[in-house]
Nucleic acid binder design. Structure first.
Length: 487
RNA sequence: GGCGCAUUCGUCUAGGGGUCCAGGACGCCGCCCUCUCACGGCGGUAACACGGGUUCGAAUCCCGUAUGCGCUACCA
C-alpha cells in the first residue's frame, strides 16, 4: 500500500551548521537507497538560509562526508541562499492569490499572548487579527511604512496525509497556525524555502527526520496553495544515545568524520546505519550497498527511535575488515599506515600485504590494524618488562632462543613448515614443551603475548628481522631486564 | 502546558489474532578448534512497559495510564 514504484525524485537537505551527523547520514542513506532502488534522482540541497549559523566550509565537509560514506547524488549541491529572491517572489504570488496575508502585529505583543495562552494551558495560534484588516487599512498602514510579516493562510479543514513510515496522520484545524512565510525584513522562513525548493526541484518523496513531522501540515498546506503536487512524506525516527536521549557529543562521536578518523570503513558505517531502523527482511546483517538497494523498501522502515550501539558498529567494522578484499581496504588504510610511519610505499609491499592478511581478523578498526603491523618493520621493539618477568627467571629461555636463532639462521629455505620443525627440535632437545619456546619467541618478535600463529608470524617477519629480534630479546633477558628497575 | 509520535531480550530487531512458554544479531558466559589472541563452530543468558477491554484465542486490534522523544518561533 505504501510501496514505492517508479522513478522518484528525493532530496537530502542538510544545514551546514556543523559536521554531518550520523542521524543525517542515515537519512541520506535511506534517500540513497530509495533513489537507487526505484530509479530517478537524488538532489542535494544545502539549507544555508540561516546566515548566522551557516559556514561555507561545512558545505564542503558535508559533501565529502557523504561521498566518503557512499551516498551518491545526481543533482546539486544547490545553495538555498542563492534562491532567496525566488522564494520571496512565490510568497508575493500567494499574497496576490489570497493564500497569504500581511501581518502588522508586533512580535512582542504576540509573544505576550503566547505566554498568556501557555499559562492558561491552551494551545496558541495566531488570532488572525490582520486577516480581518480591510484592504483600505492595509494600504494605509503600508503607506505609513509599518513593518509587516507575511503569513500563510492555513485551511480550516484538517490536513491528512499518509506517512510512509507512520501511516495515516491527521492534524485538526486547531493545530494549524498561520505561520510566517516572510519576516518583516523580507527574508523567507525555512518553511517557505523548503516548499518552494521542493516544488521547483520536482521532489516526489520527502524522507526526513521525525523532528519535521509536526511541520508537515504546514508544508502540505503550502504545496496546495502553490497548486503543486504534494509529495509523499516519510518521517524517520531519531537516533538516540545510550542514555536514550538524542545522540549527543558528550557520549562519544556523532559526526561521520569522527568515525572516519577513528578507523571505521565507510562500507561498515553505511551498513550499520542502514540497519538502524530498517530491516531488509532476511537474517543476514552484513550487506553491501548493492544488496541493500535490491532489498530496500520503505515499508520496512521502523517507526521507533533506535539507540546507537557502538559495540555493534565495532563488530560490523571487524566483519568488513576481515571479509573485504584487501585491495578494497587499502586505500582507507593508507592514512593510518602513514600515522605509524608505514605509509607511502616505504616498506616492502609483499610483506605488508602478508602481515595485514595475518592481522585483519584480529582488528576492530583500521587504526588497530595499522598498529598491529608495526613490529614487522620495526628495527627494534619495546618490551613490556612486566610481561617478560616470567622469562627472566628461566635461564633456559634465553639459551633456547639463542639456539633457535642459530638454527633459523642456518635454514636454507624460509618457510613456516621448516621453521616449525626447527623450533620443535629446540624444545625437544631441552626437554620442554614447544609452548615454552613459542611464547617467548612471540614476545621477542612482536612485543605482545597474543597474536597470529607463531609460524605464520615468523614466515612473514623474514629471516633477517627474526634473527635480529631474537638476539636482542635474549640479550634483554640476560642483561637489561635484570638490572633495569622493574615497574 | 498544548499537539503529535513512539514503547518486544542491556542494545539493534523478527513478529502484522492461533505455527510464539516469542526467532535472528551485538554484548556477556561456557564449550570446541588451538602455541597465544582473533576468526569460525556449538550451546547458554535475557524481552512482549502497565491496566482495562474486544475475541474461543492478543506481542499482534481498541481504550486508558506511565515513560521517552519531537513540535509548539518573524530558528532551521
Amino acid at each position: 500500500m505504501t510501496e514505492v514504484r517508479g522513478p522518484v525524485r528525493v532530496r537530502f537537505a542538510p544545514s551546514p551548521t556543523g559536521f554531518l551527523h550520523v542521524g543525517g547520514a542515515r537519512t541520506a542513506i535511506y534517500n540513497d537507497l530509495l533513489r537507487q532502488s526505484a530509479g530517478g534522482a537524488f538532489v542535494l540541497r544545502i539549507e544555508d538560509t540561516d546566515r548566522e549559523r551557516s559556514d561555507e566550509a561545512m558545505t564542503h565537509q558535508i559533501q565529502s562526508a557523504l561521498q566518503w560514506v557512499g551516498v551518491e547524488w545526481d543533482e546539486g549541491p544547490f545553495l538555498q541562499s542563492e534562491r532567496l529572491d525566488r522564494h520571496r517572489a512565490r510568497a508575493e504570488e500567494l499574497l496576490a492569490s489570497g493564500g497569504a496575508y500581511r501581518c502588522f502585529c508586533p512580535p512582542e505583543e504576540l509573544d505576550r499572548q503566547r505566554q498568556e495562552a501557555q499559562r492558561r494551558g491552551d494551545a496558541f495560534r495566531y488570532p488572525r487579527t490582520c486577516l480581518r484588516l480591510s484592504e483600505a487599512e492595509v494600504r494605509e498602514r503600508l503607506a505609513r511604512g509599518e513593518p509587516f510579516a507575511v503569513r500563510c493562510r492555513m485551511p480550516d479543514e484538517p490536513i491528512r496525509f499518509h506517512d510512509l513510515v507512520r501511516g495515516d496522520m491527521e492534524f485538526p484545524p486547531e493545530a494549524l497556525d498561520d505561520f510566517v512565510l516572510l519576516r518583516s525584513d523580507g527574508t523567507p522562513t525555512y518553511h517557505l524555502s523548503v516548499v518552494v525548493d521542493d516544488v521547483d526541484m520536482g521532489i516526489t518523496h520527502v524522507i526526513r527526520g521525525e523532528d519535521h513531522l509536526s511541520n508537515t501540515p504546514k508544508h502540505i498546506a503550502l504545496f496546495r496553495a502553490f497548486g503543486a503536487v504534494v509529495p509523499a512524506f516519510g518521517h524517520l525516527p531519531l537516533i538516540l544515545g545510550p542514555d536514550r536521549k538524542r545522540l549527543s557529543k558528550r557520549i562519544g562521536s556523532t559526526a561521520v568524520e569522527e568515525f572516519r578518523a577513528e578507523g571505521f570503513l565507510p562500507q561498515a558505517l553505511y551498513n550499520f546505519l542502514a540497519l538502524l531502523g530498517w530491516n531488509p527482511g532476511g537474517e543476514r546483517e552484513i550487506l553491501s550497498r548493492r544488496e541493500m538497494i535490491e532489498l530496500f523498501s520503505v515499508e520496512r522502515l521502523n517507526a521507533s527511535a533506535a539507540v546507537f550501539d557502538r559495540e555493534k558498529l565495532g563488530w560490523m567494522n571487524a566483519q568488513y575488515l576481515s571479509g573485504l578484499p584487501l585491495a578494497e581496504i587499502r586505500p582507507h588504510l593508507e592514512p593510518f599506515l602513514a600515522e605509524v610511519g608505514l605509509g607511502g610505499g616505504k616498506v616492502d609491499e609483499a610483506r605488508l600485504a602478508a602481515a595485514l592478511e595475518l592481522h585483519r581478523t584480529r582488528a576492530r578498526t583500521l587504526r588497530d590494524l595499522a598498529q598491529a603491523v608495526v613490529p614487522y618493520f620495526a628495527s627494534q621493539l619495546d618490551y613490556d618488562q612486566a610481561l617478560c618477568g616470567k622469562y627472566v627467571d628461566d635461564p633456559k629461555v634465553a639459551e633456547g632462543l639463542g639456539a633457535l636463532r642459530e638454527r633459523l639462521l642456518a635454514l636454507p629455505e624460509w618457510e613456516k613448515g621448516a621453521i616449525e620443525a626447527e623450533l620443535r627440535a629446540v624444545a625437544e632437545a631441552r626437554g620442554v614443551k614447544a609452548g615454552a619456546i613459542i611464547h617467548p619467541t612471540r614476545m621477542a618478535l612482536s612485543g605482545a603475548s597474543a597474536g597470529p600463529p607463531l609460524f605464520d608470524l615468523l614466515e612473514v617477519m623474514g629471516q633477517e628481522a627474526t634473527a635480529r629480534h631474537l638476539e636482542r630479546f635474549a640479550a634483554c633477558l640476560r642483561e637489561e631486564f635484570r638490572t633495569a628497575p622493574t615497574g
